[in-house]
Amino acid sequence: MSRKPDMGFFHRLKRMFGGKASSGHGHDHTPGHDCGHEHEHGSTACQEAVSLLYDYLDGELRGVSEERVKAHFELCRMCHPHVRFEESFRAALKRATAGEAPPPELKDHLLDLLKEA
């Protein structure tokens, strides 16, 4: 399914920020960061973006401009790690369940059962 945002996008974004957002350490969390928007952390724009975080990551913004929300998460150095945090969480769930498959004999057993049904 293609409704999840492009993960690679955020890696490109990191490079745009000169790697500052990529280390995972020592982020600039001072208000008034140079994200290109006139707002501070905790501003209405950040609050709105954060409240839409799951809808955004789930591809369920429904009527809210995806471009606008995406632009905020792309450009705001405060909110950007929150997106990465959720993506890291989801990746862990996927990884942990990736290897789970039914035993090979289950399908044959099922086909036998269906013949008798």
Binding site: G24, H25, H27, H29, P81, R84, F85, E86, S88, F89, A91, A92, L93, R95, A96, T97, G99
Partner: peptide, 19 residues
């Protein structure tokens, strides 16, 4: 926020614990 703001720790948790 101060140590692992992007939640990299999730990647270090063994699958069995996640499950």
């Amino acid at each position: 926020e101060g140590t692992d703001p992007e939640g990299e720790f999730f990647a270090s948790i063994v699958d069995a614990e996640v499950l």
